[in-house]
Amino acid sequence: MREVVVSLFMMLMASAPALAFVIEDRTTFGPNNADTVLRVVSTADIAFFAPIVRPFLDGNPNLAIDYTVASSSDVMRAVHDQGLAYDLVISSAMDLQTKLANDGLALSYRSPSTLALPDWANWRDQVFAFTQEPATIVVSNAAFDELDIPRNRQELISVMRENPERFRGRVGTYDVRQSGLGYLFATQDARASETYWRLAEVMGGLRAKLYCCSSDMINDVVSGDLLIAYNVLGSYALNHDDEDAFTIVLPSDFTTVMLRTAIIPLTSENPDLAGRLVDHLVSQSGSGKMNFLTGTGVLGAAKEISLRRIQLGPGLLVYLDRFKNRSFVSEWESAILQ
């Protein structure tokens, strides 16, 4: 179960058409002999998609869905650079989805469901958000036996500064050079507050471990290798088997919220059906791993005012710029690799 795969995502953005499109997983939902096959490429794994798509297939008995899982950078490569034909692209990389739409590779789609979406969940009638997933702090309950669990970044900085021996080498966060989602979270944090850079420096001073994925961080917290994991997808933590081993903190100063989005690419051969699948996705309310737009899920505990949804729109393209990426990564490196 890999949310965002290790890849040379930044290099891709520069130029890497020679790199092959790596498929991580692939399956077909629905009958084998169906008349119509809808091809979906997604960063979400099969276990996530299966329960969502089942009611949709029940309503369309003659339909099968060919579901391909790939990393966000591979999805981008497949759709943007190689122009492979898909009917729907689902990704957690909001910046890349925005770029697809901005570069004219997405079809517009309007329906009562998409028009009912709040403004922040719909860009140009091309990018549609259907989950909101917060970046959380996951702390080991064992480590915080005697200490107060930090409620925001300020308290997190204090507790790490006051107990350097305890936390040295046992804090973890995304490696923004490897993870597209980690990069998105880090850039949005940096945009929101200078506190991020102080936090990065403190974590760097404690020789923070760097990860590719939320699930690895959570596993290490459960196993006791990590005491603090910063910027972990809350929905992954919430559904972990060993939930008692850790506490999920939605930072009260601000909680960055990622929106999982779907677009219908220009190459779609069945855009009407893809549109109906979009309608189905945006009207989901079941709570599970994902926090759907209408459900409560992990966000239930957070106050609306501290939520900072990453805004869909051209602003996201700034961090995809080569120079911007280079300068951000170098600043991040100088903070966290001391």
Partner: peptide, 18 residues
């Protein structure tokens, strides 16, 4: 070149243009 976030986000304020 340290692209300011506002450089692009200001363009998105009026309308959802590419």
């Amino acid at each position: 070149i340290d692209l300011p976030y506002a450089a692009f986000s200001m363009l998105g304020t009026v309308a959802d243009e590419r």
